[in-house]
Design a protein around this nucleic acid. Sequence first.
DNA 1: CGAAACGTTGACCGTTTTCAATTACAGTGG
DNA 2: CCACTGTAATTGAAAACGGTCAACGTTTCG
Lengths: 206, 206
Amino acid sequence: MPESPSWITLVEPTKLARRQLQPGEALFRQGDAVTAVYVVQTGRVRLVRHLADGSTLALHAARAAETLAEAALFADAYHCDAVAEVPSEVTAVPKPDLLTALAAHPEAALAITRELAARLRDLRAQLELRNVRSAPERILCWLRMRADGIPPLVRIDRPWTEIAAEIGLTHEAIYRALARLEREGRIRRGDGVIRLCSARRRGRSV
Amino acid sequence: MPESPSWITLVEPTKLARRQLQPGEALFRQGDAVTAVYVVQTGRVRLVRHLADGSTLALHAARAAETLAEAALFADAYHCDAVAEVPSEVTAVPKPDLLTALAAHPEAALAITRELAARLRDLRAQLELRNVRSAPERILCWLRMRADGIPPLVRIDRPWTEIAAEIGLTHEAIYRALARLEREGRIRRGDGVIRLCSARRRGRSV
DNA sequence: CGAAACGTTGACCGTTTTCAATTACAGTGG
DNA sequence: CCACTGTAATTGAAAACGGTCAACGTTTCG
């Protein structure tokens, strides 16, 4: 689903900095002055907020191709920690450079608006998906959302384990639901591809 | 949580159009040419996509103070239906006017970027919240996220029924979880206010 | 080749959903 | 002013469902 954000190109390539993170290593800490926003290239970075009572609150887990802390662009200090969960690589986009680029080029600002609006739309759909209680139904919705062609096919290009986390189910639940959907003839599983079977003609044929 | 978007002011007030919607009435249909983006003033508007096989897919339910179809700003046609679920009122922001305003005023584009980034952050937090399986824990996280002051208080200014939907639980589950949290001394309920009790000193005192 | 991650399935248990019923209340119209 | 009606708040009981734990075959990759 996530595509690498195009607006990195708004900033001179020489200004972009790559950074490697070990598991547990922090990209920035709550309270740090904002120096940049980031794009995760590989791995996974967790955003965690520390509360007054000492407890923590998970805010997000940014995966490859996702942007990180865009809202920090308009703040002086980060409002949460960013910590790598696994070995990760991120691109740092310096805040001042990005801001001047946006101010200087109206079309650049439009590009970033477009990008954010698209992400917002996708995220809302993902949230709506969580409102589907039944595991099989939720998976079916997820599949239909990204089905393409006739018959409707979905290319599965990453481990179900990962998809499970995105959908909000354990991987066991996913496998069971998939098995059931296939048993009921609602989907058909092929190597790395799922075929959706139309709701019509789905009796207990041979 | 949602605050009315400030960027409406970017467009001349005379260009803004109010529109009343009856339950079931459509604001726009999938395939319609994009004429405007919207802000929901009151009520609730559902976004639904129609798929090739005739089925539908829920994409979002925009509530008061939420924006609607911002992504359509960069498309020729709407990609889903927008239908009022309850009597609703929306403000239509004409696409061309908004686009010219954004192109003309760099600071306007920045303002909208800021707004979208903030929404994105909130939405990601909301999604992350759904990863908390336990009803009491999820509610507790939700409360901690919006707690304020010492001791931490949360003002409840809308029916739990509504909050339940946002959190992703049935209202019954919410009430039971609240009762349990209070019984365990983790929260304290007062009229329209919840007080969070610190994790420390929480034995079975009198 | 061996370790690690992925895929798959079974059984059991705990929680949440469902369905149902009851109380409290605010607003409405007679 | 008071029945009357609809929404919100609660609580109970039973059923369904997904989580968790466990075990195992398979694939991947250094």
